[in-house]
């Protein structure tokens, strides 16, 4: 599960300290899904970065699957991500130099798994890209690229999955297919899912929905 307590994030600007997140508290139980919605600049992506241990909070605490992030250094947080966290990004973030298969294999290889290729192939099959194993990202459509990203995120069977605007760069129909895939895999693998989105339909599919506004979070 995910637990956040009194989370504060400030940054220094030319005009003084700027509060981006103002004392955020929330919980997402294990295996549940949660959506964070809000306007641009409301602090959604900052919160996601903190939740994934990619940034450090000014104060407050975050627990991921029982581990307190503020007790961990950067490498320990990276290890935690490698073991327990998956990510799906708005801009897919596939490595252009690697094939579809290699992109999905990468987190498995980083974790030292011996059957990386077979696992990756299986998950690419799950997202319907078994015929595109040796294609490079630039030759795939946006929807296909996001499916590769979903396969990459689930291949490690993470305890927690973060998704940052997963349909933001896709048209409505493609977006819907990607949403279906995301929830289908989430149900099967029993991952805790946290989504940041503008997409109301996507938010409605989640068990919990939080509204982010001016650095404050409220359950909808």
């Amino acid at each position: 599960m995910i637990k956040v307590s009194q989370l504060l994030k400030t940054v220094s600007t030319a005009d003084g300290e700027l509060e981006i997140l103002r004392g955020i508290d929330f919980e997402v139980p294990s295996g549940a899904s949660a959506a964070i919605v809000g306007a641009s600049g409301s602090g959604k992506s900052t919160l996601l970065g903190l939740l994934a241990g990619m940034d450090v909070a000014s104060s407050g605490k975050i627990w991921l699957d029982g581990e307190c992030l503020s007790d961990l250094d950067e490498d320990q947080r990276a290890r935690l991500r490698a073991e327990k966290v998956g990510f799906v990004f708005q801009s897919f973030q596939l490595l252009p130099a690697l094939t579809t298969l290699e992109n999905v294999m990468l987190p498995l290889e980083l974790a030292g798994m011996s059957d990386a290729a077979a696992t990756a192939e299986r998950f690419l099959g799950e997202v319907g890209l078994e015929n595109r194993l040796n294609h490079y990202p630039t030759t795939l459509s946006g929807g296909e690229q996001q499916r590769v990203a979903i396969a990459r995120a689930f291949a490690r069977q993470p305890r927690i999955l973060f998704a940052d605007e997963p349909t933001g760069n896709l048209d409505t129909r493609t977006g819907e297919r990607v949403i279906e895939l995301l929830f289908e895999l989430n149900d099967r693998i029993e991952t805790t899912l946290v989504l940041v989105t503008h997409d109301q339909r996507l938010a409605e599919r989640c068990q919990h929905c939080f509204n982010m506004s001016a650095g404050e979070l409220r359950e909808a």
Binding site: A52, M54, E74, D75, A78, R79, L80, R81, A82, E83, V85, F87, Q93, L95, A97, L106, P107, L110, A111, R152
Partner: peptide, 16 residues
Amino acid sequence: TQYVAILKSLGAQSAQ
């Protein structure tokens, strides 16, 4: 830079 950021988001450590 972006390549490494992705690797790190996937859990790679600085030493790795």
